[in-house]
Design a protein around this nucleic acid. Structure first.
Length: 609
RNA sequence: GGCCCCGUGGUGUAGAGGCCUAACACGCCACCCUGUCACGGUGGAGAUCGUCGGUUCGAAUCCGAUCGGGGUCGCCA
């Protein structure tokens, strides 16, 4: 080894010892007559000091930020009064006996030694330097730790890790596939897995009754802060289980992770809410439970009133729903207009607000203490009643949306989240986990005029609903469940269908013909005829999980080499054109549009060069 | 695919028709400095304002296109 100890590991107890250090020059402080170097490696920072009489002094004068150097010297206690309490190594310093430059370094394109804001594209272009910075070092090390904890936990529960192919078969359902052309089979393509779903179910049939895998998944869809074209899941599956077994295992895992990582408040027991309950109380299937503002149904409270905006909606089968915003009476007229605009953008024709000023309960509140555009239609008593129904006090704001459930849910969910954000209601140190259960089996796809699976087509419908799978798909409940945390879906799973007949019925409900079903899923249907055990599983997103524990909002911050929004790799320059020879080998011809695009790109590159 | 935001020395920002021969901080370079730790001091170099085109007597600034990055809706079983 080129070093005898890590920079960050040197302590007062080493005083007097000879050490060899190697690392990057974090910072140089040249006082003319003496030079300090902060030397950095993965273990931390240590101060190296060189005096003019030291052999390494001339070299110390010449080194620059990010030079890679090796230092030999004696550990010494710092002079009294010069200790640095902010550094674990702050009691000591290393007096240079020799200093060797292992490699020089260009001035980096952005500061490596401080956590300054840098354009993300620049960070990605020089990711190897970005990763050298403290924040990213912390994140990728946390990621390792979390994955390590997961592997140990799964092993301790008798799961075995099995690798499954990356080159597989395209499926007609779900996300767009990444395709890989076959050289050996002209005109045929592999698809990269959207998840190892089918493989893990086949492993269940194979008698591997407790499987897991840290699996890379690929989906060719547009990206977001929490979505990458390739991402990592803890994929797991168990045979002979019921939903409760999977949920308990998942909760145990996350309790374990939270306890080991530390620093977060986590519910003692993860609440379980049905999908219907979530939509009713929060308007979302991934509610943030760190704050209140639950939705209240006011339909019956306003049924007989004069206000036709409400009564007409009720006649049309809609409902009147509201949230109470604690302390919201101080929101300005302009702020209220902005909230109304948000409601409109999400499909509402308007938003009724009521502000209760003053303090204390709403009983006996007078018109003077109520601000609302609908005062003509409601008495102060009526409005107080509505407020009380939502749990409001004086000083609070009531926001009322009227219309179809889908719209009012969306509007109140968006408002709830926005207000929580604006008013800082979400505790950053709380991880508010919950399970959402009883997802509907199907949803209607307006664009393609057919039913599609909400979770996926291997999800088991409720036994009680098997009779209506094909006659009334919209009413079928499924054994699909999510783990949700702080308004984000972190895991998703289900109990699977293990019967060929049920699977065929679901495929028919999705509008797949027998021929198509056999072509795309014949292998699954066949496997199910050979004694498939009842089974189920879940797939927590590793990127999102690590981001939660790292307090990062963007999963790109916990991925070593992420892609941009347009799925390109700024460091390597992928994707890129390949040679005509390579295309020929895989029997691929580019169409005119693709050729034109490449030509244009090439000419732009020339201009730059 | 729609909508929105951003693009100015190496980095982060300011500049919003003529005051710009583009400002500030950090960084960089040189010199000075024996106890700093975001060391300090003095001096200096460095951007034609993403690209292309247009409007104008005049464009970093206005308009259009385009490229790149980001957000969001669709999409993501």
């Amino acid at each position: 080894m080129l070093k005898s100890i890590g920079c960050g590991e040197v302590r007062a107890e080493h005083a007097g010892a000879q050490v060899t250090l190697a690392g990057w020059v974090h910072r140089r402080r040249d006082h003319g007559g003496l030079i300090f170097l902060d030397l950095r490696d993965s273990t931390g920072l240590v101060q190296v000091v060189a005096f003019p009489e030291d052999a390494g002094f001339a070299t110390a004068e010449s080194v620059r930020s990010e030079y890679v150097v090796q230092v030999q010297g004696e550990v010494a206690r710092r002079k009294e009064g010069t200790e640095n309490a902010d550094l674990p190594t702050g009691e000591i310093e290393v007096r240079v006996a020799s200093l060797r430059v292992l490699n020089e370094a260009e001035t980096p394109p952005f500061p490596v030694n401080q956590d300054t804001e840098v354009a993300e594209s620049t960070r990605l272009r020089y990711r190897y330097l970005d990763l050298r910075r403290e924040r990213m070092q912390r994140n990728i090390r946390l990621r390792h730790r979390v994955v390590h904890l997961i592997r140990n936990f799964m092993s301790s529960r008798d799961f075995i890790e099995v690798e499954t192919p990356v080159l597989g078969l395209a499926t007609p359902e779900g996300a767009r596939d990444y395709l890989v052309p076959s050289r050996v089979h002209p005109g045929s393509f592999y698809a990269l897995p959207q998840s190892p779903q089918q493989w893990k179910q086949l492993l269940m049939v194979a008698g591997v009754d407790r499987y897991f895998q840290i699996a890379r998944c690929y989906r060719d869809e547009d990206l977001r802060a929490d979505r990458q074209p390739e991402f990592t899941q803890l994929d797991l599956e168990m045979a002979f289980v019921e939903q409760e077994d999977i949920l308990r295992l998942t909760e145990d895992l996350y309790q374990h992770l939270a306890a080991e990582v530390g620093g977060f408040t986590v519910p003692a027991e993860f609440p379980r809410l049905t999908y219907a309950e979530c939509m009713e109380r929060f308007g979302s299937d991934k509610p943030d439970l760190r704050y209140g503002m639950e939705i209240t149904d006011l339909t019956n409270d306003v049924r007989g009133t004069e206000f036709q905006v409400f009564t007409r909606v009720i006649e049309d089968g809609g409902r009147i729903r509201a949230i109470a915003v604690q302390g919201g009476a101080d929101i300005s007229r302009r702020g209220l207009d902005a909230l109304t605009e948000v409601a409109r953008e999400n499909g509402a024709s308007g938003l009724v607000w009521v502000q209760f000023t003053g303090e204390g309960p709403l009983d006996g509140i007078t018109a003077d203490d109520i601000k609302t555009p609908v005062s003509r239609f409601f008495s102060p008593e009526d409005l107080a009643g509505l407020g009380a129904a939502c749990g409001a006090k004086r000083g609070d704001l009531l926001l009322i949306a009227a219309g179809a459930d889908a719209m009012t849910s969306r509007v109140l969910d968006v408002l709830r989240r926005q207000l929580a954000e604006e008013r800082g209601l979400a505790d950053p140190d709380t991880l508010s986990f919950l399970f959402v259960t009883e997802f509907p089996m199907f949803e209607y796809d307006e664009d393609h005029e057919r039913w599609s699976a909400v979770h996926h087509l291997f999800t088991s419908p409720f036994t009680d609903d098997l009779g209506i799978v094909e006659s009334d798909p919209g009413a079928v409940r499924s054994h699909a469940y999510d783990l949700v945390c702080n308004g984000q879906e972190v895991a998703s799973g289900s109990i699977r269908i293990h019967s060929r007949d049920v699977q065929m019925s679901v495929l028919r409900a999705l509008g797949l013909s027998m021929d198509e079903a056999m072509l795309k899923f014949g292998h699954m249907l066949e496997a199910f005829t050979y004694g498939a055990p009842p089974h189920g599983g879940i797939a927590p997103g590793i990127d999102r999980t690590v981001a939660l524990f790292a307090r990062e909002r963007d999963i790109r911050e916990v991925i070593a080499f992420p892609k941009t929004k347009t799925a390109s790799d700024l460091l390597m320059g992928a994707p890129a054109a390949v040679t005509a020879e390579q295309l020929k080998e895989v029997h691929v011809d580019l169409n005119a549009a693709a050729r034109e695009h490449l030509a244009k790109q090439a000419s732009e590159d020339e201009v730059e060069a």
